[in-house]
Nucleic acid binder design. Structure first.
Lengths: 341, 341
DNA sequence: GTTAGCACTCGCCCAATCTGAGTGCTAACA
DNA sequence: TGTTAGCACTCAGATTGGGCGAGTGCTAAC
């Protein structure tokens, strides 16, 4: 069977109505709600077809219909297509300029959660093809070295490394110069084994220390695998009874607290570029098991210099996709422009 | 009326029974549960007294009794007294040694939550009377300076400060020496205005920069006002129906997500030293409004060098206080000893 | 192809009823 | 005087059954 124009109109009406009310919607409602001027009986015939096609389901006999995951899917796809044609609307809920990036991202998460009444998450930017700006070694004690690494976008990492041999101030100075002259401006991925070997050679008798320092650099970068994620409005899920039944709320809250799963969501999301950077996961499509009854909308922000991160909204399947997408786009652009200043 | 020994026994039996079952407990149960060999009728008389004295309440006529906040209070007080007499028991759920303090604390929170089946929080240590170990300035660009501050306990803070005048490498080196020779080993509280003034004088034409750097130091320390708090097991509250009614769960989860209130709990807790460092807040005693229906048990850990933090367990009023106190004591000692190694 | 009409289904609401745990009181007993 | 058995009473919670209404599918007619 084919999804005729009329069927499409009816499907859209059903979804939109259900988003508003959260109640199964019946044929009579649609008959009035649309401007098709069809009787409820005709609508019923069409609805029977739509059900057969898998776009809507009946929670129980003699109830109205609600959209299936597939139904939401076509609704969202059509909506997204229409959105790309729309003129970009400028909103006024400006993010305040914040000195520190982490504060800004926290605030972003909060703003999104408040505006949408869903739960939100914002990941810190992942370093991608990022360049080293500065490596600073400082001698803390006889056998302890403080390593500070600054990368593009002023991302700072520290670590204190214990040394197997003792070291004096002069050596530290030499190593600083050695490392900075050879590594600055390099992309982190480009620090090869060959380069490391030649550095070690240059360091002479201190080659061990160079090795340890570079290990620390690698570690510091590697630590980004579990990157910071800011969340807000997790308690908004309590506004949607369908998410608080059973122990659904428990597992959702857990996901938000552990953040491990959100992390893999971010990683997965950054890997594939998309449609304006906006992606919609509906129900079972969700990559996170605990959110099989939610929808997740994500966007990718890009601060330049390969600094990308993910923003996401998590809510019930009957979320207001329009509003959410608008909000995400808006915040995305605001983030970009604030940072460029 | 006086709280006779027999009344005390009955009260303890009621509390203990209610902790186990979560159901109001009746006279017949107590009559069997205790070894007093009294009939249910006698127990009823005593219970009427206990109710009049405010230690127990009836949720409704013809229901059993449950402990009031006051009832829990005497139970906990007696228990705590008995505990101090007990020999310290050594548990086996060792925390693994972790290189990084934040990892260790995260793990601690998780362990507590899993062991107790309540929600847990662990605050990062507050710096109290902490000494500066190292200040490291590095020139990032013409008008940007990277400041890295290391304090006792290897607490590291960075910030990048914009300068109002340009600066060269040589000056940075001088300032590094100046600051380190004058400030190292000083407690943060002891950096007085007088000292700052004399440093500025020593810096000569670069006095402005010294001012800016010291501001950054102050800022970095000040940022500790909202210190890191690790939480775990927030979803455990769903195991206790009395905490998930109404929108209680929502506000508890919110408190856990925002962490602002937990923060003030920590601060308040560190101010007053107590009874083994263990404190119990029951219901209305709670300093956090959203937890008026919970009990909170906190402990203070002390890593030495004035580094103290708070560990807390949040659960229903009918929590297993015994177990919680044991767990907290245990973890407290483990933290202390791990760090001393 | 569209519509009116009709029988049918089934979740939900409400009120009535029943059950059982638990109480308070009283009278009797040691 | 403290303890106990007995009894009437209370009340939340579970169970039942009827009525309502929203909604459906089917059929026959336009």
């Amino acid at each position: 069977m084919e999804l005729s124009e009329r069927k499409m109109t009816i499907l859209k009406a059903i979804v939109r109505n259900y988003l508003e009310t959260g109640e199964p919607v019946g044929s009579r409602t649609i008959s009035k709600y649309t401007d098709l001027n069809l009787s409820s009986a005709t609508i019923r015939n069409e609805m029977a077809d739509l059900e057969e096609m898998g776009y809507i389901v009946q929670p129980h006999t003699s109830a109205g219909r609600i959209p299936s995951d597939a139904g939401y899917r076509v609704y969202v796809d059509v909506m997204m297509e229409e959105k790309t044609k729309e003129v970009e609307e400028i909103k006024v809920n400006l993010l305040e300029k914040e000195a520190k990036l982490d504060q800004l991202l926290k605030q972003t998460a909060k703003l999104l959660a408040t505006n949408t009444n869903y739960a939100s998450m914002v990941s810190a930017p992942v370093i991608q093809g990022n360049r080293l700006k500065l490596i600073q070694l400082s001698r803390m004690s006889d056998r302890q070295l403080l390593v500070v690494i600054v990368a593009d976008g002023n991302i700072i990492k520290n670590s204190i490394i214990p040394l197997s041999e003792s070291i004096n101030e002069e050596t530290v100075l030499k190593l600083n110069i050695l490392l900075n002259t050879n590594l600055n401006g390099l992309e982190i991925e480009n620090i090869t084994l060959g380069l490391i070997a030649s550095l070690k050679q240059l360091a002479g008798i201190h080659s061990d220390i160079v090795g340890e320092v570079l290990d620390a650099v690698a570690d510091a970068i590697h630590a980004d695998e579990d990157l910071e994620i800011y969340t807000s409005g997790a308690n908004n899920i309590f506004k949607y009874p369908e998410l608080t039944d059973n122990n659904m709320a428990s597992s959702i809250i857990n996901t938000f607290e552990e953040k491990q799963d959100l992390n893999s969501l971010v990683v997965r999301n950054l890997e594939s570029e998309d449609n304006n950077g906006i992606r919609v996961y509906i129900g079972e499509e969700s990559p996170v098991a605990s959110m099989k009854d939610c929808s997740i909308v994500t966007a990718t922000y890009n601060l330049g210099d390969g600094m990308k991160g993910t923003i996401g909204i998590i809510g019930p399947k009957r979320m207001d996709y329009d509003k959410v997408v608008d909000n995400l786009k808006d915040v995305m652009h605001q983030l970009d422009s604030i940072y460029k200043k």
